[in-house]
Design a protein around this nucleic acid. Structure first.
Lengths: 178, 178
DNA sequence: ATATATTGATTTGATTATCGAATTAATAAT
DNA sequence: ATTATTAATTCGATAATCAAATCAATATAT
């Protein structure tokens, strides 16, 4: 087997492990996987527009809106309109949302950190440099090419009946039913 | 920023790139992402039991059954009972299923292969060794630890109304409605 | 400035994913 | 023979996901 094949296998293992990790964490925290990823993205960035969140988690705006509403209902995210451009809606993490991310049992991450920390300094640089190289190889395609690699699994969103807060989302026609 | 943080960032980039790749490919082939992963897993292995598929794609048996049924309806997978242990159902890829995987536009993979191939031999070994090390660090946790890393997105399954073939799935009670 | 196009987000409607719990059948253990 | 375990399916409920239609705000063109 050539080294490229081995590279793919290693990538799949990595993807699968992180996927398993994400699912466990989601379950532990009582969120779904897409909700967890969304909250994570917002929490990392402090505040993002809905569109930015969608790009970060790689889902459509429709889906993202729905996930965000779910998290808002749970009190983990807040939304408000951008004042300078009223088309935009800014999403930010609540205290509870940040706390949830902070307190989440990051088992995989801890383990990785511990083990990575156990490596000699030179080896750390070595591993890091290689990973960054791989990321670059893949990233270039990112914007415009794509497909396959992943052997792990994937995800989804949710309900929408009750609250689309943000004051009144479309102020101009408040509650008109079409 | 310490090198561990950079490691996480690199991993996220890798995960995101492969996620985007998988989604594009799924779309190109007219499958959903979980369907693609499932078909891929079965096609790689030639034949697997439903439980093995579930483990490979990291979903529950219930979900896996449903996805497999969808692929069966599309004529991409076949099912049949294991003769030596009739609890087991063996899933295998049809010609159409294999062809779909074969013919799939593996843009990301091609690009990665090309670029990886462009590296000097010593550098290939270097990158590969590092990736395998990371995979090991994560894998150990795999079975029993977990959480977070993934910044990409995830996936799902399908309908179940019409055909659950496999001759008659439960021969003993053929078509009784409970 | 008015009409036209573009952008950002939401809603709607339809499909698929996903899981837990209950069920069914087959095999294994006592 | 009972009893337990294992493998897969079904059912019911919820969440995810997207495309298309809609709505409002901003940008661009005429």
């Amino acid at each position: 087997m050539d080294s490229y094949q081995q590279l793919l296998i290693a990538l799949r293992r990595i993807n699968k492990a992180t996927d398993i990790g994400a699912k466990r964490l989601a379950k532990d925290t009582g969120l779904t996987t897409p909700q967890l990823h969304t909250l994570q993205a917002v929490s990392d960035a402090t505040s993002l527009t809905v569109g930015e969140v969608a790009r970060a988690i790689n889902l459509t705006l429709a889906t993202t809106t729905s996930i965000i509403n779910g998290l808002e209902r749970k009190g983990l995210l807040d939304k408000h309109r951008d004042v300078s451009d009223k088309r935009r809606v800014i999403v930010s993490s609540t205290i509870a949302g940040n706390k949830l991310i902070q307190d989440a049992p990051k088992t995989l991450q801890d383990l990785l950190e511990r083990r990575f920390g156990e490596l000699e300094t030179w080896e750390q640089s070595f591993v890091l440099a290689a990973l960054q190289r791989v990321a670059m190889l893949l990233d270039a395609a990112d914007i415009d090419a794509a497909p396959l690699l992943h052997t792990g699994a994937i995800e989804r969103i949710g309900d929408n009946s009750t609250g689309n807060a943000v004051d009144n989302v479309y102020p101009a026609q408040a509650a008109g039913s079409k």
